[in-house]
Write a protein that binds this DNA or RNA. Structure first.
Lengths: 345, 345
DNA sequence: TGTTATAATGTTAGCGCTAACATAATGTTA
DNA sequence: TAACATTATGTTAGCGCTAACATTATAACA
């Protein structure tokens, strides 16, 4: 007679036996307590504690075709922007029943599609993905996922399911408006990687420059290289070589802005007098730099937190108050664009 | 007669039927191909492709008491140091059969213990944890885990299983030796959070100062606040207030060093002439700053890569060449400690 | 008072795969 | 040539939980 060796730890049968009920009643007590009488619930919880019972996640997922995992896919692991959102997701799920399954799509839509397919094949409780530029296949997979889906970090009026983010276009526009209003004249753009969100920032920025009569396509500098502080310094050096008249730049993120600042310092260019610099996201270092750097502030932590709250409310059976949450952004004006009035000519 | 609804996708039975073999032969063909004849393997692989079969990870994990997950626990999600290592882990597992389950211990040993317990309860294929300062319970859990375990980011001669890292003590000592050799005299330390690794750096640093006759306990400044660029500026400002004679600092990480640089610039202190600054880890921005910042370089990417390679070799049935890999560190000397010789008195 | 609905609990079977044992064909050694 | 070993494949049962259906007691309603 064959004997299968289990994992050795207490199972739901052990709890049921000790509490004097059937296994499905134990399962109900843990998963849907309102379906079990107070009396039995107490006996069951007592048995769970005494036996130190922990539900077997794989068995539960197999039987119910649903796991206790929240699938999260980010385009970068080393980009501080996503790190803040990820930290909020983890904080919000702290000591709760869910686990995070993290995927890295490397800014590649096809990689994201493959990860989504893999994750969905494992029946997650919910999915969180970045942005609004998924492939058609990814979109279809997520629409048919039968679990809550939240897109984060961007905004549109056509969500797959739910969405928390802000408008990159408007954020870029606000940067452009700011530089024009500060009186800068030959205003440039430094962009790295140029993923869809970076593109939207640039388009919004351009629109603001056009409106202000300051748009010069020759001053828009982009590269598909991944973003870094060094790259910011390198790009502004190159741009200034071609166009020594450049007097302000909007960088598509803070690392680039910091690098642009260092680049100016190396070249003896005064910030903000001879060069205005504005970044995006407002990472913690922007306030600490010397001079401090202006940035478009985004609330990445709140994005992650709200995303999980939306998921939790749906899993609790409630429709979320809003399917789309626009957390907006905020111009954080600091020394790097506070040029003296006399220079605004 | 009851009818259970499955997930709807093809199962191993479908593949077996199409290939004309039993289910366990299909399982063997996918998991242990050497146990199946060439002929049958080809038929099975053909059926897998035709049916677009993907093994059900939960069923496999339940039946074998082992999953295809690599559990990774880091103390911080927003610390760039771990982000580099994490990126290497993901890169090394790219498009392979394993998934990452990421846990955030928040620098709390008890949280790490709880996460290790939860992860091990799900039968991971391997575990990667940070450092060498686990609780006794965590250590015991991992020793009895019956899967490969790698400790990363630190080094000791008493690994739980395997280890890839470097000596923080020696790294700190190298920083101290460097500052003494450069002729700095009143040398301080700026430390945040003060987790075990930060402590080791500080102890190594102190030893170097003692040896060089430059140790002044009054110049050792630490806080349990979490590290940031702003905090680095704040701490050096405070230390200089108390001790205006301070002429160099070793910061326990690069963010702090960058903040110290900004703090000096704000106060009109010349770096490296009036103040030497050295950081730890050598993040990308250290080369880009103005002046560029000296740092103790650690190869965080290589740590993650080697950790996964060790795991893969064990899972492939080979003993790793080394159970302990010390990747060491390297002093990256830059402008911030290149003080002119005339100042070395 | 009888009928219908609801709530609480139990039973059966199965979700999909694989451990453990079984069988048959082939190879090796004395 | 017989005995033993190895290789390849199959069968049985179960890993641990829960969907789906069943049963019973109690409540609500006409």
């Amino acid at each position: 007679m064959r004997k299968r060796k289990g994992a050795g730890r207490p199972t739901i049968s052990d709890v049921a036996e000790r509490a004097g009920v059937s296994t499905i009643t134990v399962s109900r007590a843990l998963r849907d307590p309102s379906k079990v009488s107070d009396h039995l619930r107490r006996k069951i919880n007592d048995a769970v504690r005494k036996l130190n019972y922990v539900p077997h996640s794989h068995a539960s997922a197999l039987a119910s075709t649903r796991s206790n995992v929240i699938g999260v896919i980010v385009p970068s692991l080393t980009n501080n922007v996503f790190a803040d959102t990820l930290r909020a997701i983890y904080d919000e799920l702290y000591q709760g029943p869910f686990q995070v399954q993290l995927g890295n799509s490397r800014y590649v839509a096809k990689d994201e599609e493959r990860l989504v397919r893999t994750f969905l094949g494992q029946g997650p409780s919910a999915m969180i993905v970045a942005g609004v530029d998924q492939t058609d296949a990814t979109r279809e997979l997520l629409e048919n996922a039968e679990c809550p889906v939240v897109q984060v970090m961007d905004i549109s009026d056509d969500p797959i399911d739910m969405m928390v983010g802000f408008s990159h276009f408007e954020g870029g526009r606000a940067a452009g408006v700011h530089l024009v209003q500060k009186g800068y004249k030959r205003i440039g753009f430094l962009g790295a990687r140029m993923d869809p969100r970076s593109h939207r920032r640039m388009e919004g920025f351009k629109e603001a420059l056009r409106s202000g009569g300051r748009y010069d396509p020759d001053l828009m500098m982009t590269t598909t290289d991944s973003s870094s502080v060094s790259l910011g310094g390198h790009l502004i050096e190159q741009l200034r070589k071609r166009r020594p008249d450049l007097d302000a730049v909007f960088c598509n993120n803070d690392d680039m802005a910091l690098g642009a600042l260092f680049g100016c310092q190396k070249a003896g260019i005064s910030v903000p007098d001879e060069m205005g610099i504005i970044g995006f996201n407002d990472l913690e270092m922007m306030a600490a730099s010397y001079p401090s750097l202006t940035s478009i502030r985004t609330d990445r932590y709140q994005i992650g937190k709200r995303a999980v709250q939306m998921i939790k409310s749906v899993l609790d059976g409630e429709a979320p108050e809003q399917k789309i949450i626009d957390l907006g952004f905020e111009l954080q004006c600091r020394e790097s664009t506070m040029r003296p009035k006399s220079k605004a000519r």
